[in-house]
Amino acid sequence: MTTSTALPALTDIPQVLPGVIRIENADKDVAKEIIFDRTRSVYPHDQMFGEFCPINAYIAAPPREVYEYLSDTRSLEEWTYSLRGFVETDEPGLWESFDRVGGQTKCYCRTVANPDAMTVDYHCAWDQGKHLWMIYLMRVVDAQLVLNKPGSVVTWVNCKHPFYDENPYPETAPPQRPVWVGDGWDLFYAGHQMEMDNLKAICEYRADNGLPIKPDWMK
C-alpha cells in the first residue's frame, strides 16, 4: 500500500509570488488566455533579442565530429565572418586574432569545452586578454535524440553583457577606431545566423565528401 503526501514545492513561500503561474493558481482556461495574449504574429525586436541572442541549426554531420571541430579555437578562422590570423599567446589556451570588422582590432579567445556534455564556450574580448567578458555559449546535441534523424543540432547563445554598451577598456583600443563591438548588438542575430550558416555549410560539405570535419591542419 502506498501513501501520498503533499509535495514540498513552494511551501517555504507563504504567499503567491507575482508572475508565477501554476495550475494551482490559474486553471487551464486562464492559462490559455495568458498564452494566447502573449502569442503574436509580430514581435518587437527588443523583446525578442534584448538581452540574449539565440541561434540554432541542424547540421547533417556527426555530432561528436562537429563538437571536436568547434572545440578547437582555430575553427573560428573558418566559420566566423571576420576572425582571422589565430596565434596562441604565451598564456596556454589563450589565442589572439584580428577581428577585421574592427580594422586592426585584436580579439582574444579562450575555449572552454566539455566533451561529456558537448558544450563549447568561447570566452572572448576585443583589445585585451585579461578580462574575457564576451561569452559565446554553444552546445552540440545528437539529432537522433531530438529530431529522430542522424546529424547534429547546434545551439548558440550570446548574452548582452553591459560592456557591449560601453567599452570598459578604452585605453587598450587602437587609435581612432570608429566602431565598438556592441554598436551592432541589434544586428547580432542576423550576423550570427550568417556565421551559423557558414558552420553548417562547411561541416556538411566535409561530411558529404568523406572529409574529416576537423581538417588535418588543425591536428
Rank of each mutant, 00 (worst) to 15 (best):
residue 6 A to I: 13
residue 188 F to I: 01
residue 205 Y to F: 15
residue 195 E to K: 00
residue 2 T to D: 13
residue 63 P to Y: 08
residue 41 S to V: 08
residue 183 D to Q: 15
residue 54 P to T: 07
residue 32 K to Q: 10
residue 133 W to S: 05
residue 152 S to Y: 09
residue 183 D to V: 14
residue 180 W to T: 08
residue 122 Y to F: 15
residue 70 L to K: 04
residue 212 P to K: 00
residue 82 S to G: 02
residue 24 E to D: 14
residue 208 D to V: 05
residue 153 V to P: 06
residue 22 R to T: 15
residue 90 D to G: 15
residue 209 N to L: 09
residue 214 K to F: 00
residue 63 P to A: 10
residue 94 L to A: 00
residue 82 S to Q: 07
residue 123 H to A: 04
residue 124 C to E: 15
residue 151 G to N: 09
residue 70 L to I: 08
residue 151 G to L: 00
residue 215 P to Q: 00
residue 177 R to P: 01
residue 73 T to A: 12
residue 173 A to E: 12
residue 113 A to S: 15
residue 70 L to R: 10
residue 3 T to F: 10
residue 87 V to I: 12
residue 173 A to K: 15
residue 197 D to W: 07
residue 44 P to R: 06
residue 75 S to E: 11
residue 57 A to H: 02
residue 190 A to Y: 04
residue 11 T to G: 01
residue 129 G to F: 05
residue 213 I to E: 01
residue 60 A to I: 00
residue 97 S to T: 09
residue 112 V to E: 12
residue 25 N to P: 04
residue 48 M to R: 11
residue 130 K to N: 12
residue 85 G to F: 11
residue 100 R to N: 03
residue 54 P to N: 09
residue 107 C to K: 02
residue 205 Y to V: 03
residue 64 R to T: 07
residue 218 M to G: 06
residue 25 N to W: 11
residue 45 H to A: 12
residue 194 M to G: 15
residue 193 Q to E: 14
residue 78 E to L: 12
residue 133 W to T: 07
residue 186 D to W: 08
residue 73 T to V: 14
residue 190 A to S: 06
residue 130 K to W: 05
residue 49 F to Q: 01
residue 208 D to M: 12
residue 46 D to H: 11
residue 145 L to D: 13
residue 18 P to F: 13
residue 206 R to V: 12
residue 52 F to L: 02
residue 57 A to K: 05
residue 137 L to M: 11
residue 134 M to Y: 08
residue 205 Y to W: 13
residue 62 P to S: 10
residue 14 P to R: 13
residue 127 D to R: 10
residue 102 G to L: 09
residue 181 V to C: 12
residue 111 T to Q: 01
residue 114 N to L: 07
residue 213 I to H: 05
residue 126 W to Y: 12
residue 161 H to R: 05
residue 174 P to L: 09
residue 100 R to Q: 11
residue 50 G to Y: 04
residue 1 M to H: 08
residue 88 E to Y: 02
residue 8 P to V: 03
residue 184 G to R: 12
residue 216 D to E: 12
residue 58 Y to H: 05
residue 37 D to T: 11
residue 165 D to C: 03
residue 11 T to D: 14
residue 163 F to K: 01
residue 207 A to W: 03
residue 142 D to G: 09
residue 182 G to T: 01
residue 199 L to D: 07
residue 118 M to R: 13
residue 196 M to S: 11
residue 142 D to I: 02
residue 95 W to R: 00
residue 32 K to D: 13
residue 6 A to R: 14
residue 141 V to T: 15
residue 52 F to H: 04
residue 217 W to R: 09
residue 150 P to H: 07
residue 192 H to K: 00
residue 196 M to N: 04
residue 134 M to P: 00
residue 199 L to G: 03
residue 178 P to E: 05
residue 168 P to N: 02
residue 127 D to V: 03
residue 65 E to Y: 07
residue 207 A to Y: 12
